[in-house]
């Protein structure tokens, strides 16, 4: 077998974990800042309709051109980042909390409580999550709020399963037994012994899940179930731009590119974090 000598190949250099970690963190950090500072950064009101300037090419006044209603594309992208990133964080945080609570309870108590909770999780996991979200949105009607709630109700199951597994392995360790003999309350055991030891995998799965949450929100909006017109959101922007795919494909390309970059960044970040902490992603 030939061992490559000299300069490492491009692929090897690209897979340099530290580089990916730093690069993705910077990109996502800037994007979060841009989303927060959207009202100051955006050159125009993202909802201001001006048919006189519709479908314009990039110019100094409209850096990325305008859409079919003459709205500034750059401004809409910036405001869209607020929806996508903001609600992805919300979905992530809330489903994580529910999953942490239920998974830890099931793993720590065990017995019939565990059986009951996990059979329920199995039931939810039996369906692809998109189908469940579609079903829930079908019941409650389209809208961003419904999509968010539906995604939360579906996502926590995966966290619950992961935390249950982690807690079950930890529970058998003697330091938990020692803590009980030491007179530590269950709450103290959770805070002092369980939580610090399940935090690294939590970080990894969380990063990967953020990417999924963004994609789910955008997909729902694209299907017309999430953010409703005229709301600025990346998926909704693709949805509105698709009628002009022949004449103005950039209306779809800009938000599509952003979604792709953000999700790729979250995934690469999650991968390199998992490498770093030695977390097995399959464990979820």
């Amino acid at each position: 077998m030939n061992v490559p000598l000299g300069r490492p190949r491009l692929l090897d250099r690209l897979s340099n974990q530290r580089l990916i970690l730093i690069g993705c963190s910077i990109f996502l950090g800037l994007l979060f800042l841009a989303a927060l500072a959207a009202p100051w950064l955006a050159p125009h009101d993202p909802y201001l309709v001006n048919l006189a300037v519709k479908l314009q090419d990039p110019s100094w006044t409209y850096p990325l051109g305008t859409d079919h209603l003459g709205r500034c594309t750059l401004s809409r992208l910036l405001y869209g980042a607020r929806v996508s990133l903001g609600f992805a964080v919300l979905i992530f945080a809330s489903s994580l909390l529910i999953g942490l609570l239920i998974g830890t309870l099931a793993g720590y108590i065990g017995g019939w409580v565990d059986q009951l909770l996990m059979r329920f999780c199995d039931g939810v996991m039996a369906f692809p999550s998109l189908i469940l979200v579609l079903g829930l949105v079908g019941i409650f009607g389209p809208g961003l709020k419904q999509v968010i709630i539906a995604l939360m109700l579906v996502q926590w199951v995966y966290y619950a399963r992961m935390f249950r597994g982690l807690v079950m392995t930890l529970k058998e360790k003697n330091f938990i037994a020692a803590a009980r003999v030491n007179g530590s309350s269950h709450w103290k055991i959770f805070r002092m012994h369980l939580l610090p030891n399940i935090l690294p995998p939590l970080l990894v799965i969380g990063t990967l899940e953020m990417g999924w949450a963004i994609m789910d929100i955008s997909a729902m909006s694209f299907l017309g179930l999430g953010v409703q017109s005229p709301g600025a959101e990346w998926g909704a922007m693709i949805h509105e731009g698709k009628s002009y795919i022949r004449t103005n494909p950039e209306l779809m390309i800009y938000p599509g590119l952003l979604i792709m970059l953000v999700i790729a960044s979250f995934n690469l970040l999650g991968e390199s974090l998992s490498e770093r902490f030695g977390v097995n992603k399959q464990s979820k």
Binding site: K173, N174, F175, A177, A178, V181, M192, H193, P196, N197
Partner: peptide, 11 residues
């Protein structure tokens, strides 16, 4: 209590 495997017996 003092357990056998001290590495597993401490956090």
């Amino acid at each position: 209590v003092v357990f056998q495997d001290s590495f597993a017996a401490v956090n």
